[in-house]
Design a protein around this nucleic acid. Structure first.
Length: 640
RNA sequence: GCUCCGGUAGCUCAGUGGUAGAGCGCUUCCUUGGUAAGGAAGAGGUCGAGGGUUCAAUUCCCUCCCGGAGCUCCA
């Protein structure tokens, strides 16, 4: 027998007695008028629902306000509906696609005759404000599939989506004023609760993400509860724009792409090359210390090798075409592993030799589709800091341990915090389930043994083995793909690689692919943005500029520059223009140190040192002390 | 690859159906400087490429190349 009242338990443990079918909004009102006003939605037994949802039975209830982290997604999803309402008001014939909340905002896809222009976006933003002012309540309705077909008879995209529902499935629609959408919800109570909306951009997007389907027009936007948060978000976008490696790469003379060379190929100019070289030198020292051996393999190899490796079959579309030389076909390598395997196979290997770790700054070529190319971040020719570890299955945990140390050491040097993800067996996978389970267990238990937090990407591994990925977090909080370690059950089989065990039998070793930096191009591109072009001293292309105040002190300055160069410091003499001009130029070029030399400095054997970004604050130092400071900062690879 | 936007001096960009502009940079000269641009003069362009319309095309139209915002993709 159902009673007429229900018991509602609040997060603090107190209980409310409410009439059955009371709504969450009514519950909020019972708790307090302030909460009732601030309420946006409710969590009932762990499920987030609209405030208008009747409570049918005893339950746990939490009222969500803008202070709750879940609320932002709600706001943005509702903002997407407000956008669609606005677009439909202006363009009545617009077909409506999907409009979800995403990481930093929301989008909505529309099928329209004419693509949207920036002026359209402004008009829509104006209309969005009107829809918000109108304060239409969001009304949820449960409908049958038949009813829904009727409601959306003018919306072909929605009808298509509708047909995917089971006949007896719960279908809900939401109305706000004139706009009706097929939507699971929940939403904020009314359009008036949506605030601080900014439409950011419009671009084409395929219906259902399928490139064979209709192209819709997607509008991206974002929304925040507080105006200040919106402003800060827009400032972050501005900041990201200022850090764009393509802009800084041009300004600081680091790299270029040249139409004559071809799309997706990077020309490293001298200053960019210096940075890259420093990184490579550092990494070589690091990995030699960690027991790697450095190898080199050719850029062009016989196609036969890629038939054995399976690259041609699985990856052929992305490889550069074959070069036919007197009947033998050759390919630019898309990966370094086959070459390393050939080196491994140059001799019969004993378990006593393992693990064998081959490392190469290996340049590979991949024919990426034109639309994906992007500065240094996505290119067609790039150099990986690639390594392959050949070991026994028992040695895998130890190798993972060693790698965690290596990665941690390296990422600290560059100043990147990071997170980890273990990617597990996908549906289609090579190797036995036990093999995968053992490998995944090995990865996870090493991490757990060290008390390291990690995410799991279920089914995200490659078909040939599980993966451990590191995500870097840059100076403005963006995530970048970092080091990866990949177990490989495939290539050892294909190449039939072996070692002789203690039992004098042949065994198949396990192979690990790993990159730390990934691609030099992408990593340096990322670093440019991470440091906003202001590289720490050890990486700065020009470390010190010496500025004599007038030609009178030129000779002294020249000698000092040479002294610095003799110590391996990248010093430059800048003597021509006015001092102010040279200071400004040094700051704009982000030179870490400038040393001014005038009458006083020549007499005292000192130098007036100005640190990048420190403004007028200068420090007159003995030259010896200045040199010491530079050498120490370079030696420790200080982040500055 | 797809949709849209763009390509003008080394760089950033303005402009026009009738002989092409600015700022920075570069060269030369003057200035000999004390902490974010001293002054002057000069050089520098097949207006992305090809085709079409036109008396005339950098400008309008078409094709291609390259770049950008996204989509898709990143084994």
């Amino acid at each position: 027998m159902a009673s007429h009242t229900i018991r509602v338990t609040l997060p603090d443990g107190t209980e409310l007695e409410l009439p059955r079918h009371a709504t969450a909004a009514e519950a909020a009102k019972r708790i307090g008028p302030g909460l009732a006003k601030a309420a946006l939605a409710a969590e009932v037994d762990g499920e987030i629902v609209d405030l208008t949802r009747p409570l049918e039975a005893d339950c746990d209830l939490r009222i969500l306000t803008e202070r709750d982290s879940e609320a932002l997604e709600l706001l943005r999803h509702s903002a997407a509906h407000v956008l669609a309402t606005a677009v439909r008001n202006r363009v009545p014939g617009a077909e409506i696609g999907f409009g979800p909340a995403i990481e930093d905002g929301f989008y909505y896809d529309f099928g329209v005759e004419e693509p949207f222009t920036p002026e359209d976006l402004e008009a829509f933003e104006e209309e969005v404000r009107r829809v918000i002012e109108a304060d239409h309540p969001f009304e949820r309705r449960r409908v049958t599939k038949e009813e829904a077909r009727e409601l959306f008879h003018d919306d072909p995209l929605k009808l298509e989506r509708l047909e995917e529902f089971e006949d007896d499935e719960v279908i809900t629609v939401y109305r706000d004023g004139p706009f009706l959408d097929l939507c699971r919800g929940p939403h904020v109570p009314s359009t008036g609760r949506v605030r601080n909306v900014k439409l950011l951009s419009a671009a084409g997007a395929y219906w259902r993400g399928d490139e064979r389907r209709q192209m819709l027009q997607r509008i991206y936007g974002t929304a925040f509860f507080k105006e200040k948060e919106l402003e800060e978000h827009l400032e972050r976008l501005e900041e990201a724009k200022k850090r764009d490696h393509r802009v800084l790469g041009q300004e600081l003379d680091l790299f270029a792409v040249d139409q004559r060379v071809g799309p997706g190929f990077i020309l490293w100019r001298p200053h960019g090359s210096l940075i890259r070289n420093e990184i490579e030198e550092y990494e070589k020292e690091l990995i030699l210390r960690h027991g790697y051996e450095i190898v080199y393999t050719p850029h062009i190899m016989s196609e036969r090798l890629f038939e054995i490796s399976g690259h041609l079959e699985n990856f052929g579309e992305d490889m550069f075409g074959a070069m036919d030389m007197k009947g033998v076909r050759y390919r630019a390598k898309p990966m370094n592993c086959p070459g390393h395997i050939c080196i491994y196979q140059a001799a019969q290997r004993s378990h006593r030799e393992l693990p064998i770790r081959y490392a190469e700054f290996g340049t590979v070529y991949r024919y990426e589709r034109t639309g994906v190319l992007h500065g240094m971040l996505r290119v067609r020719g790039f150099t990986q800091d690639d390594a392959h570890v050949f070991c026994t299955e028992e040695q895998v945990p130890g190798e993972i341990e060693a790698l965690l140390d290596l990665v941690d050491e390296m990422l600290q040097v560059f100043g990147y915090p990071y997170t980890l993800t273990v990617a597990t067996r996908p549906e289609k996978a090579l190797g036995s389930e036990e093999q995968w389970a053992r490998a995944e267990h090995a990865l996870k238990s090493v991490l757990e043994g060290r008390g390291i937090d990690y995410d799991v990407d279920e089914g995200g591994g490659a078909f040939y083995g599980p993966k451990l990925d590191f995500q870097l977090i840059d100076a403005i909080g963006r995530k970048w793909q970092g080091p990866t370690v990949q177990l490989d059950f495939n290539l050892p089989e294909r190449f039939e690689i072996e070692y002789v065990g203690e039992d004098n039998e042949r065994h198949r070793p396990v192979m690990l692919h790993r990159v730390l930096i990934g691609s030099m191009e992408r990593f340096v591109g990322g670093l440019i943005e991470h440091y906003a072009g202001a590289f720490p001293l050890w990486l700065a292309p020009v470390q010190v500029r010496i500025l004599p105040i007038s030609e009178q002190w030129l000779e002294d300055a020249r000698e000092f520059v040479q002294e610095l160069r003799d110590l391996g410091i990248r010093a430059e003499l800048k003597a021509r223009e006015t001092l102010s001009y040279r200071i400004r130029d040094g700051e704009v070029r982000k030179v870490p140190y400038m040393g001014v030399i005038g009458e006083r400095e020549v007499e005292g054997g000192t130098v007036a040192v100005r640190r990048r970004g420190a403004g007028k604050k200068q420090e007159v130092m003995d030259r010896e002390a200045f040199v010491e400071r530079l050498l120490e900062e370079i030696r420790t690879r200080a982040l500055g």
